[in-house]
C-alpha cells in the first residue's frame, strides 16, 4: 500500500451538491441529494447498478443537465456555464470512464497527445513528448506508447484512460466504476493507482463503484446511493457497521454478487 501523507481541507469543498434532482421520463434517478467533497479527499459513491451513480458524475462534469438543484465545482455553477467556461473548468476535471473510452482509431501516443495539444497550444514537441512519457511512467505502461487500444487488456485500458486525464494535471478526478470487469489482482492495481494519483497529483476524487474492496481501499469517505438518495455518508467502517436495513441489504447483495 502507498503511504499516506496528506491533509483534507474540511473548510474548502471543491464539489458542492445541494438538492440535486434528475429524472429520465417517469424514472426518478436522483431525488434531492446533497454532497460535499473537500480538497484532497476521495469519496466513494456506492450503490447497485442503475441507481444513478454515473448520472451523478456526468452532471458534475457537465455531460448531463440536472432537472434542479445546485452543482458547484471549484466555486462555479456547472449548469450555468457557457461552453467556453465549461471547457475551462473541464481542464481541472479528470473523468475516467467505465469502459475507458479510448479513441480506438488512435495509438496510445495520439490518445494522450489529443487533449494536451488542444489545450496547451504553446508546448514544444519535446515538452509534449516528455509529458506523455511522464504520465505513462506514472501509470506503469511506458511500453504501450505505440500500441492501439485494441491491443491492450482491460486493466491496461483503464490505466491509459486515467493517464489521458492526468496529462492535463486535473484538480478533481471522477472515476466511473474503475474496477468493473477486472480480475481481483488487476483491481488491486487500479485501487493503488487511484491512491497514487491522489497523493502524487493532490487530487480530490469521486469514485463511483459497487465494489466494496475498491471503496475500502481508495476512499476517505463513503456515500451509499439507494433509491435516488444518499442513505448514509461516513467512513467505510461507519457505513459498513450501519444497521439501516436498506444499507445492510446492499451489503448482502454485494457479498453475494462478488
Amino acid at each position: 500500500m502507498i503511504e499516506e501523507e496528506r491533509n483534507i481541507d474540511q473548510e474548502n469543498p471543491v464539489i458542492t451538491i445541494r438538492d440535486l434532482y434528475k429524472s429520465f421520463g417517469d424514472l426518478v434517478v436522483l431525488d434531492g441529494i446533497n454532497l460535499d467533497v473537500f480538497k484532497g479527499e476521495n469519496v466513494a459513491v456506492l450503490g447497485k447498478s442503475g441507481t444513478g451513480k454515473s448520472v451523478l458524475i456526468k452532471i458534475i462534469a457537465g455531460l448531463l443537465k440536472p432537472d434542479s438543484g445546485l452543482v458547484e465545482v471549484l466555486g462555479q455553477k456547472v449548469d450555468k456555464l457557457g461552453l467556453r467556461e465549461l471547457q475551462q473548468l473541464r481542464l481541472k476535471l479528470g473523468f475516467s470512464f467505465q469502459n475507458s473510452a479510448l479513441y480506438d482509431s488512435m495509438t496510445i501516443w495520439e490518445n494522450l497527445e489529443f487533449p494536451l495539444v488542444r489545450n496547451k497550444r504553446n508546448l514544444t514537441a519535446k515538452e509534449v513528448k516528455n509529458a506523455i512519457e511522464s504520465v505513462l511512467d506514472d501509470v506503469g505502461l511506458p511500453q504501450t506508447i505505440n500500441q492501439m487500444p485494441s491491443e491492450l487488456s482491460g486493466g491496461q485500458k483503464k490505466r491509459i484512460g486515467i493517464a489521458r486525464t492526468l496529462i492535463l494535471q486535473p484538480e478533481i478526478m471522477l472515476y466511473d466504476e474503475p474496477t468493473s470487469g477486472l480480475d481481483p489482482a488487476t483491481s488491486i492495481e487500479i485501487n493503488n493507482l487511484i491512491k497514487q494519483v491522489q497523493l502524487q497529483y493532490n487530487t480530490s476524487s469521486i469514485i463511483i463503484t459497487h465494489d466494496l474492496t475498491c471503496a475500502k481501499a481508495t476512499a476517505d469517505r463513503v456515500a451509499v446511493l439507494l433509491n435516488g438518495k444518499f442513505y448514509i455518508t461516513g467512513s467505510f467502517e461507519e457505513v459498513f457497521n450501519s444497521t439501516e436495513p436498506n444499507i445492510k441489504t446492499f451489503y448482502d447483495y454485494n457479498f453475494i454478487t462478488n
Partner: peptide
C-alpha cells in the same frame, strides 16, 4: 460508434470540442 462507446463524451470532458 464513438457516441455509444463514450468517446465523444471523453473528448468533451477533456476540454476539447
Amino acid at each position: 460508434s464513438m457516441r455509444v462507446t463514450e468517446q465523444i463524451d471523453a473528448m468533451e470532458v477533456s476540454a476539447t470540442n
